[in-house]
Amino acid sequence: MSYEPLVTEFLGVTLKNPVLAASGTVGFGREYETLASLSKLGGICSKGLTLNGSLGNDGPRIYETPAGLLNSIGLENPGVGRFIKEELPFMRSLGCAVIANLGGHSEIEYIKGASLLNDAEIDILELNISCPNILDGGMAFGIDPKSAADITKKVKAKSRHPLLVKLTPNAPDLIAVAAACEEAGADGLSLVNTFLGMAIDTKLRKPVFNNVYAGLSGPAIFPIALRMVHEVCKAVSIPVAGIGGIAAKEDALSFLMAGASVVQIGSMTFAAPDTMAKLVDELYDYCKLNALENIRQIVGIL
C-alpha cells in the first residue's frame, strides 16, 4: 500500500494534500504554474470573480507594511462567462482541485454568477462575502449573521457545487456569522479574508488608497487569524479552511491543530513563490517523522 499521508477529503472532494493557493494570489494559475509548482498543490482558488467582470479600483492598489501588505485591487476580473471559457480549461489542466471564488455587489449578481458556474467543471464554489475593497456588496454581506445566512442559503439552493463560504475577520461577531452560515447550508467555511487597514501618505497628507481603507494580509495577521480559526472551529462542525499569514510549516501546522482541515496560502507566494510547494514537502516529512498515517490526525487537537 502506498503511503499517502497528505490526501485530504474536503467538502466531498479528494485533495492530494491540504495546501491550497488562496484567491487573488495566483490569478488563474498561468503566471505561477512553474514558479510555484501549482500542479503539486491540493488546489487553487481563482481570482475573485464577479458576474460581469470588473476593471478594479483606481489609484494605488498595493502598499507594503511590516511583514505584510495592504491591497485594494477591487476584484479586477474578466467575469464568470469569460472565466469559464478562457481560464478554467487551463486551471483544470494543472491537475489539482479548482475552486472558483465568486464575489458580488448584489444578491442577484451572486445568484446569477453561481447559476452560471453550474455549467462549469469546478470542484468547489467559494462564496466571497468578505472582500473589503468594493464599495457596495462584498464584505457587507459577511459582516452581519442574518445577511450572511441569507445569501448562503440562496446560493446553496442554486448551486450544484460544494459551497465554501469565505468569511471576513471584520465582522463584529465572527462566530455568529460562522454559525449562521453553517445553519444556512454552507458545506464549509474559509477564513480569514483580509483585515481592514489604512495607510496615509504623510507628505501629501492624504490616504494612500482612493477607498481610504484597504485589506491587510501577510504574516503580520497570522496570530489573529489563528485565534479566529480556532474560535470558529470550536463553534461549528463543518470543515474549515484556515487562511491568514502562513509563511512557514509551523504556521500551517498551527492552523491544522487549531481545527482547520486545509490551509490556503496567499501573500507569502508573492514574497517567495516556492512557499506552497515547499510546504507540501515539509508536511509530508512531518507526517513521516511523526509516524502519522494521515495529516488529519493532528486536525483540531487543540
Binding site: Y32, L35, N71, E76
Partner: peptide, 15 residues
C-alpha cells in the same frame, strides 16, 4: 513603474 506585489502578473496590483 508602480508598487508591485507579485511582479509576474498574478495579483493585478500594478495595472
Amino acid at each position: 513603474e508602480k508598487n508591485m506585489a507579485c511582479g509576474v502578473g498574478a495579483c493585478f496590483g500594478c495595472t
